[in-house]
Design a protein around this nucleic acid. Structure first.
Lengths: 325, 325
DNA sequence: TTGAAAGCGATACCAC
DNA sequence: GTGGTATCGCTTTCAA
């Protein structure tokens, strides 16, 4: 391993000088600088981040905590976060929490142990006390509490929009798939949808689901059509379930959107690939990730944060599982 | 920040002793230990990984380099890697390379700068010289070269299997979608498929694609049926493209699998959700991730590695885009 | 403009 | 069994 001492020796200067040229601060004579640069080049030296981090008591690492990278919504978030952060020279320490308090705490702890300069968390236990003890800047992503900066999409409005769309396009017996109760955004959407449905002249039923997993999605879809066979409009808890609903509807010979309309949530990439393509409420996941990263960076830089909770707009993406016009 | 000195002071012992109980080595008297534990507890102390890493010249971090977490195959890999590693107390430093040499090199460098104990890479430029300069244990995932330990699936056999399946089930005019030329596993599959097709009594055509992106998948599918309208069997370069092909076929009123059979590759979770469900060649992505992590860990522990390149089996998953029997 | 030296928070050697 | 202390590679004060 090449260290700063090797460089100093080779350049015939002290380590202090090398450090100065590395960090580009303090006075360094023009030709001294040149000598040092040359030595760095020749030795192919790059500074040890760990030593730097130890002294400065902060690294260039950011902790990112996700519920489950395997759920297609989160890679989008993660990608947005990474793209934005890496432009500023930060790197990602990643953890999946599986919505498991213990795992979550473990990761938060390693983040701290590794001197991360900031944390972005998209998990459910944000109200858990450990978050209040975190001293490094923290941004919640796709979640909210009253205590922390956050970037999230307007779930309530999303739910309303979904319901309104189905109603306007003529569904009269709507079944709403309620997402996992412990996930806040899922509750918001549900609430929004219920608001809209309650004040409209339509029948509606609720089917509660307990997960977003691929394995179970088809199960929920099946249950949906078994329990409510005359459903002519489905508000899915997310696109995965929405796509499963398409599957199940077609399997039962129902025509989409003539007999059943289906609307999803998230607008994950694959919702464009289903047949028929899935109408859905878009959350700008990638942009949310970027936005969260941006917010975190300003906090890290101790610049004034004009807005510490950023609500991103949701948007109706009309595709082929709802009727035209 | 609570340091080892605080603990030492509170417990009325030296830092050396605290260190001993922390790492559970060396002699420590029973009640001294107890005192120290108590102090640790009360101060809610947890050791600074950075300092530890600096002294030991190795962290507990593992670098994971992926082409693009947004492609649904990779989260599976990543999850497998993480689950296995975290059980042994390692944490993940994540990077997306976008199959971009520069990004790849940058990440490899930060990995090294952060004292990672090992690297798992699923990118394309593994033959690039930088990998030969990496001193920390390195495992390639879903890729191979002659120089490095690797975990990958048998792409050639997968390609053969895909082709053989379509042929056996009666397709006579097969179109094969050739994946991006710069991706080795894609080439392997293609080669396997071609082998099988060449020696069978079937017509076949090739359509070259240049990416795996969602955006373009529908484009390839459209092109496929435009250029080769009498195709009765499609070998897709992966499941994304496979699902897009289903979409396009249905759109054109083709019955699946009666008029066109379609076979995908990967067995990503959503291939079970399409309608009809996608027949595909399964790569055990999650297990591959775990296996790579396991291999890396044995290398890190300097235990003897019995097998440094692990080829995982591929498997035909028969679903509804191919004919029965 | 440069260098010597004191840390940063751990670990581990050596002495007692 | 326990403590003192050099050390890891870097940054930053302070003096020259």
């Amino acid at each position: 391993m090449v260290t700063i001492r090797d460089v100093a020796k080779k350049a015939g200067v002290s380590v202090a000088t090398v450090s100065r040229v590395l960090n580009d601060n303090g006075y360094v004579g023009a030709d001294t600088r040149k000598k040092v640069m040359k030595a760095i080049e020749e030795l192919n030296y790059s500074p040890n981040e760990v030593a730097r981090s130890l002294y400065k008591r902060e690294s260039r690492l950011i902790g990112l905590l996700l519920p489950d990278i395997t759920n297609p919504f989160f890679p989008q978030l993660a990608r947005g976060v990474e793209d934005e952060l890496s432009e500023s020279g930060f790197r990602l320490l990643l953890g999946n929490s599986d919505e498991h308090v213990q795992k979550e705490m473990d990761y938060i702890q390693t983040f701290i142990q590794n001197n991360v300069v900031g944390i972005i968390s998209a998990t459910n236990h944000v109200d858990y006390h450990i978050y209040n003890e975190v001293k490094t800047p923290l941004v919640l992503l796709d979640r909210t509490t009253d205590n922390h900066p956050a970037v999230y999409a307007d779930g309530r409005e999303g739910g309303r929009l979904a319901a309104r769309t189905l109603i306007e396009k003529g569904s009269r017996k709507i079944t709403i798939l309620k997402g996992p109760a412990h996930i806040k955004p899922a509750r918001d959407r549900f609430q929004g949808a219920i608001e809209e449905l309650s004040q409209a002249e339509v029948d509606f039923s609720v089917l509660s689901t307990t997960s977003y997993s691929f394995e179970e999605a088809l199960g929920w879809a099946k249950e949906l059509f078994e329990q409510f066979p005359d459903t002519d409009g489905v508000i899915a808890s997310n696109d995965i379930v929405g796509i499963a609903a398409i599957h199940e509807a077609l399997k039962r010979g129902k025509r989409i959107p003539e007999e059943v309309q289906i609307i999803g949530y998230d607008d994950i990439p694959q919702s464009r690939l289903s047949y028929p393509t899935l109408t859905t409420i878009r959350q700008p996941a990638y942009e949310m990730g970027r936005e969260a990263a941006r917010l975190l960076i300003t906090m890290i830089r101790k610049e004034t944060v004009t807005q510490s909770t950023i609500q991103m707009p949701v948007e109706l993406i009309e595709r082929d599982t709802t009727r035209k016009g």
